[in-house]
């Protein structure tokens, strides 16, 4: 395996370690904990009364709009990071380009702002 891949193998190993740690702890606790399920115990919690309807209720559309805005800015972040690293070499040219780019993005934010979608109603 190449040195590069070996470096990133650690990501997999650490993730497995996290899974093993949680699994180990929960497994260990299963030796100690009781298991006596009953009708009342497994009911979904709804302030002590019997739950009505389904828990998967419909939700507000506003989360969707914020998610869209998030994608817009997140993609921008992917562009900004490599530029930030190389800024010293790119000099005034890079600076000008990125100022234009950030300006256009700000226009997007201002548009959303003016449209009133940033208001949580």
């Amino acid at each position: 395996m190449s040195e590069f891949l070996r470096e990133y193998l650690l990501v997999l190993l650490f993730a497995l370690l996290g899974v093993a740690a949680v699994g180990g702890l929960i497994g260990l606790a299963s030796l100690l904990r009781p298991n006596r399920p009953s009708q009342g115990k497994v009911k979904n919690y709804e302030s002590g009364v019997n739950p009505t309807g389904t828990g998967w209720s419909q939700s507000q559309i506003r989360y969707y709009i914020f998610a869209l805005l998030f994608v817009m800015f997140d993609v921008e972040a992917v562009f900004i990071f490599p530029w930030a690293v190389r800024l010293e070499e790119l000099g005034y040219f890079g600076l000008g380009e990125m100022v234009i780019f950030i300006f256009i993005l700000t226009l997007g934010l201002v548009y959303a702002w003016r449209k009133g979608v940033l208001r949580w109603v």
Binding site: G18, V22, P34, K43, Y45
Partner: peptide
């Protein structure tokens, strides 16, 4: 450790069980 491990009856059991793993893996 001594508390019973309760799965709500309507829960999506696999996703419900796996969610804490994702949170811890993120910290690691």
């Amino acid at each position: 450790a001594q508390k019973e491990d309760i799965f709500p009856e309507k829960a999506d059991r696999y996703v419900y069980a796996f969610a804490p793993y994702v949170v811890i893996v993120s910290s690691f």
